[in-house]
Design a binder for these strands. Structure first.
Length: 575
RNA sequence: GCGGCUGUAGCUCAGCGGACAGAGCACUGGUCUUCGGAACCAGGUGGCGGGGGUUCGAAUCCCUCCAGCCGCGCCA
């Protein structure tokens, strides 16, 4: 640190946009005070990133928005704002561009200083404080433990897990949860199917129920139980199965699901049993009591209904069937009641397959009826996945039980590529998963392009270290080449990318950003080849310059590793 | 029938009120005796499903039509 000079706290990259917004707003105020602009309301948040980098790093549309109220041409308004704009260390002089934009370019010295800032912040670079002090829960996958996870569940897993990581980066304290449907009809049918397969192993005639699970995995589970417990669950013909058999089967299925997810890089903080909602004086009883108290429960046709039509829903919905058993809807109400009250999450995110979208509004209505602000619940829907191979759609037939499992996908393309491809598309878009492209270990595959950049970064640092060269003592002011500054510019976008992902609850900008960052690095790294100038290499004869560039390399590596980490992908040092 | 999602470059998809519409793949032509070529540079490609409207400005908002998918059980 240079001594003697006044230390002004540097504007961190994560606050740049807001900082520029403030600069523009106060410039407008001063312009008004000076009589260069008439009295007008000051627009908020006018600064954005222009699509075209030649327009600068940021641009304000304030003049375009004010023109009408100010009764002046937008260009004149822009000039007036520019005239009064206070400059600081972050930007160069703003430029006015037709039809009335105010364009900002980050100052080279600011960019250079950010390299040191990244090195100082390390893995916490790009952390935000949006969620500081708040607790969030992300519940995802939550597939019925009645069969193996399929490819669609993989999409939900990638989205949910990455969203959780993004929330953590934004300062939230996050819990990842899997809701286990171990109660209800599906679990019963599963148990019946399992008992049928189990009996078959002992040579009995037994048929799986019409709506049962025909997949071969049910035979495997039955075999596993026979191997562990012999004929303990065999009952006289015609009798209902031992409830413990079903439980044991579900436990086995769940363990398989857990192993698949682990392989995919997903770890849960909690596996929440649906059945546990029904404990005495538990969430189910409490939630229903509260709804009854508030007059939202009505008995009709022998069943108990939630009077959701009074609350704007298209119809009422059954919560307790006429046979006395609660519906899944009742479970979900109780489950969410428990999330908000007993566990006190500030924010709850459910990641669901789009086939459940009809349930979204109903659940939010119920949450509201329980006195909880429905805005605290965000339900993220993702569309179905189609697999493609050789340009042909891989047909998925659920009937025959020959779905493509997530395990099979992981066998074929590996977790890193699978996650990258799942994350690339916005959740709302149906996606085609191109197996051919995902498997390719070549430049055609964006996954390797990104990871390769990380490996190259690592390799440079290592090679330098072998020559006794480290970033230590490098002077970032030596970083003045266009490719160097372009790389820094790209690095500084990460906090904004994270903020955007978190506020929209959608992680899909991450892969594109990873690609952009990798591109900026590759261009920087190969500039010397392109320009035929060996002095542009990181490791040159100029030791001080080398150290400065090693700082840039080390900082870029930190940022790229962070992005890969957020996506749940590995950041290899060699490939 | 009602409701939701989707329709953007040859393919897969971003962009969702602002500056000539972008990325990856595919395609074409170059670079470099390579700090790892799984690299770099350059190039063409569409005017955003059709129509109407709002706006200084629309792929982005509104209306309508068309197409695909999903939902509308005392299944989850």
């Amino acid at each position: 640190m240079p001594g003697g000079t006044l230390e002004v706290p540097m504007i961190p990259a994560r606050n740049l946009r807001r900082h520029l917004d403030t600069l523009v707003a106060s410039a407008i105020e001063r312009a008004i005070a000076a009589g260069d602009l008439p009295e007008v309301a000051i627009p908020a948040e006018t600064v954005e990133r222009p699509k075209d980098p030649s327009h600068g790093d940021y641009a304000s549309t304030a003049a375009l928005r004010l023109a009408r109220a100010a009764m002046r041409p937008p260009l004149a308004v822009a000039e007036a704002i520019a005239k009064h704009l206070e400059r600081d260390e972050t930007i160069e002089a703003p430029r006015v561009a037709p039809p009335g934009f105010l364009n900002f370019r980050l100052a080279s010295t600011y960019l250079q200083d950010q390299v040191d800032a990244v090195l100082r912040e390390g893995a916490t670079f790009a952390d935000l404080d949006l969620g500081t002090g708040k607790r969030a829960q992300v519940e995802f996958v939550s597939a019925n433990p009645t069969g193996p996870l399929h490819v669609g569940n993989g999409r939900g897993a990638a989205i949910g897990d990455t969203l959780a990581s993004l929330l953590e980066a934004a300062g939230y304290e996050v819990e990842r949860e899997y809701y286990v449907n171990d109660a209800g009809t599906q679990a019963e049918v599963f148990a019946e199917t399992l008992y049928a397969r189990y009996q078959q192993l002992f040579g009995r005639e037994a048929e799986i129920p019409p709506e049962g699970y025909p997949g071969a995995y049910m035979i495997e589970i039955a075999e596993q139980i026979r191997a562990e417990a012999g004929d303990r669950y065999l009952r006289p013909p015609g009798e209902a199965p031992d409830p413990e058999l079903g439980e044991r089967g579900i436990a086995i299925m769940l363990e398989r699901i857990r192993a698949t997810l682990e392989r995919f890089g997903v770890r849960y903080d909690r596996w929440y049993s649906e059945r546990s909602l029904y404990r005495p004086d538990g969430p189910y009883e409490q939630a229903m009591a509260l709804l009854r108290e508030r007059g939202f429960l009505v008995e009709r046709e022998g069943a108990l209904w939630f009077a959701s039509s009074e609350l704007g829903e298209s119809k009422d919905n059954v919560v307790v069937r006429s046979d006395g058993r609660p519906t899944y809807y009742a479970s979900d109400i109780a489950y969410h009641f428990e999330k908000f009250t007993e566990r006190g999450f500030d924010l709850v995110i459910d990641v669901w397959g789009a086939d459940h979208h009809g349930h979204v509004s109903r659940l939010k209505t119920a949450v509201g009826a329980l006195g909880i602000d429905p805005a605290r619940l965000h339900i993220l829907l993702y569309q179905l996945v189609t697999l493609k191979r050789g340009g042909e759609v891989v047909r998925l037939s659920k009937r025959g039980g020959d779905i493509i499992t997530l395990d099979e996908l992981l066998d074929e393309v590996g977790p890193d590529a699978a996650r990258f491809f799942f994350l690339q598309r916005s959740p709302g878009a149906q996606m085609d998963f191109d197996l051919d492209l995902a498997v390719k270990q070549s430049n055609e595959n964006p996954v390797y392009y990104v990871q390769y950049a990380h490996a190259r970064l690592s390799s440079i640092l290592q090679r330098a270290a072998e020559q006794g060269l480290t970033p230590e003592g490098g002077d970032v002011r030596r970083l003045d080449q266009p490719h160097e500054l372009a790389l820094v510019r790209e690095m500084l976008k990460l906090p904004e990318v994270i903020e955007s992902c978190v506020t929209t609850f959608e992680p899909h900008p991450l892969p594109q950003y990873a690609l952009d960052l990798a591109t900026a690095f590759h261009a920087f790294n190969d500039a010397f080849k392109q320009q035929g100038d060996p002095l542009l290499k990181v490791i040159t004869g100029d030791e001080q310059l080398s150290r400065a560039r090693l700082k840039l390399v080390a900082a870029a590596r930190i940022v790229l590793a962070r992005v890969l980490g957020l996506m749940g992908m590995s950041a290899p040092d060699r490939m």
